[in-house]
C-alpha cells in the first residue's frame, strides 16, 4: 500500500467535502424517488443515512457510484461531484468511478468462487497487482484489514459461499477494499447478520474510517449512533435533516426527525 497516497488524500479531504450532491432528483419511470437532495459528505468520516423504508436512502447511495445505471427505468438529474468532478458527466466511465467508490451490499454476495479469487477479482480486473506475489500480498492485506485473515488463511481455496454470514460480509468488505477505493458505500451491511457479527462489522467500520470515506445506509438508529460522525435523515424522498450524529439524535431541528427517532413512525 502506498502510504504517501493516503496522506495526500487526507490533506485534500480537510479542505473540502469529498462528495457534494446538489439538487439530485431520481425518477423510477414516472415516480420520483428522490427530491432535490443537497448533501456534503466529508472525507474520512462515517456518514449514516437513516430513514423509514422506501425513503430513498438506498437510492441515493446507489447514485454515488452510479449503480442505478444498471436499472433501465431509472433516471438521475442534478449534480454529484467526487473531489470536484461531476460523476454524471457524460464522458465519465462508470467503471473508473466504481473503482474509486466501492460498495458493500445488504445481503453478503460473495461470488461462487474461492475466497482468494473473490478478493483477487478487483485487482485482476484493474491490473492493480502486477505478478502473483503482489496479488497474494494484496489479498492478504485486504483480508487483514477486514479482520478476516486469521479465520480464513488456511482455506483460501475453499468457496467464499461456504463462510458464515458475518464472515461472508467481511469477505465482501475485504473484496471492496482490495482495489483500494477512496469511498466505501455500505447498504445496510448488517441487516442480514446476527448481533455478534454485527458488532464485529461495526468495529471494522470504525477502523476503516482512518483510510476511507464511508457512507452507510442503516435502518437501525442505534447503529447510526454507534458508528457514524454525521447522520442524514431521509423521509419520502427528501433529505429532512443532516448534522453531527450526536446533535441530530439529541436535539433534532425538524419535527419529522424528532418523530422518527422517538419511534413515532418508521
Amino acid at each position: 500500500m502506498d502510504m504517501q497516497n493516503f496522506k495526500t488524500r487526507e490533506k485534500a479531504a480537510m479542505a473540502e467535502p469529498k462528495i457534494i450532491a446538489r439538487d439530485v432528483n431520481v425518477y423510477y419511470g414516472q415516480s420520483q424517488a428522490l427530491k432535490s437532495i443537497e448533501l456534503d459528505i466529508a472525507a474520512n468520516e462515517v456518514t449514516a443515512l437513516i430513514g423509514p423504508s422506501g425513503c430513498g436512502k438506498s437510492t441515493f447511495l446507489r447514485c454515488i457510484n452510479r449503480m442505478n445505471d444498471v436499472i433501465e427505468s431509472c433516471r438521475v438529474e442534478g449534480r454529484i461531484t467526487l473531489e470536484g468532478i461531476d460523476i454524471y458527466n457524460s464522458g465519465l466511465d462508470p467503471v473508473l468511478l466504481r473503482a474509486r467508490v466501492g460498495m458493500v451490499f445488504q445481503k453478503p454476495n460473495p461470488f461462487p468462487k474461492s475466497i482468494y479469487d473473490n478478493i483477487a477479482y478487483g485487482p485482476r480486473l484493474h491490473g492493480i497487482a502486477s505478478g502473483k506475489d503482489e496479488l497474494e500480498a494484496t489479498v492478504e492485506s485486504s483480508l487483514r484489514r477486514a479482520g478476516l485473515w486469521e479465520e480464513v488463511k488456511d482455506r483460501l481455496d475453499s468457496p467464499g459461499t461456504g463462510l458464515s454470514g458475518g464472515q461472508q460480509q467481511r469477505l465482501c468488505i475485504a473484496r471492496a477494499i482490495a482495489v483500494n477505493p477512496e469511498v466505501i458505500l455500505m447498504d445496510e451491511p448488517c441487516s442480514a447478520l446476527d448481533p455478534i457479527a454485527t458488532a464485529k462489522i461495526e468495529e471494522l467500520i470504525d477502523e476503516l474510517r482512518e483510510n476511507f470515506t464511508i457512507v452507510i445506509v442503516t435502518h437501525s438508529m442505534q447503529q447510526a449512533a454507534r458508528v457514524s460522525q454525521k447522520t442524514a435523515f431521509f423521509h419520502l424522498g427528501e433529505l429532512v435533516e443532516v448534522g453531527e450524529t450526536d446533535k441530530l439524535f439529541t436535539s433534532p431541528e425538524d419535527q419529522r426527525t424528532q418523530g422518527y427517532i422517538t419511534g413515532r413512525f418508521g
Partner: peptide, 18 residues
Amino acid sequence: MELNPPLEIDKALLKKRN
C-alpha cells in the same frame, strides 16, 4: 473533465478493457 483514475490503475489496461 475526466475523472482521474486511482493511481494504481493501469491506463493502457483500461483502454484494452474498454
